[in-house]
């Protein structure tokens, strides 16, 4: 029932990925994931310049209820982080696909995008939970 924009790609671990062109993607967590976690109180982001393989844990979203690891959906180097979340972690709750973005990755291999789920595939994956 939650909002799953059709122009994004998804990981089954509840990250969304927006292709910004030039090999850069923006990553956040889905509306469904923020709903499960509840009110966000801290978001621990990686540093710009950090490098991750696809599937590495690279950030932590901590809500009143629980701490949840966030995984790099594709391999690459962090080129930007959403510093506003330091003071406004609730942006992840209020605008998961907009102001609640977490970080941007410069992809090592753009073809990894094709391995992610589309909106329909993600919707099915959360139905099965």
């Amino acid at each position: 029932m939650s909002n799953i924009p059709s122009d994004l790609k998804y990981a089954s671990s509840h990250e969304w990925v927006r292709n910004e062109g030039d090999g850069v993607v923006t990553v956040g967590i889905t509306e469904h994931a923020q709903g499960l976690l509840g009110d966000m109180v801290f978001v621990d982001l990686p540093d710009v310049g950090d490098e991750f393989a696809a599937g590495d844990d690279c950030a932590v979203a901590e809500s009143v209820k629980a701490a949840s690891d966030i995984y790099a959906p594709v391999a690459g180097e962090i080129v930007a982080i959403n510093e506003e979340l330091e003071d406004a972690p609730e942006n992840v709750n209020n605008d998961a696909y907009g102001d609640g973005w977490l970080f941007k990755i410069k992809m090592e291999d753009a073809s990894e995008l094709d391995e992610l789920l589309d909106a329909e595939g993600y919707a099915e994956s959360i139905d099965e939970e």
């Binding site: 509840g38 009110d39 109180v41 009143v64 609730e90 709750n93």
Partner: peptide, 8 residues
């Protein structure tokens, strides 16, 4: 009810 939107 666990919350009505935001528990904070």
């Amino acid at each position: 009810p666990i919350n009505y939107g935001s528990q904070i």
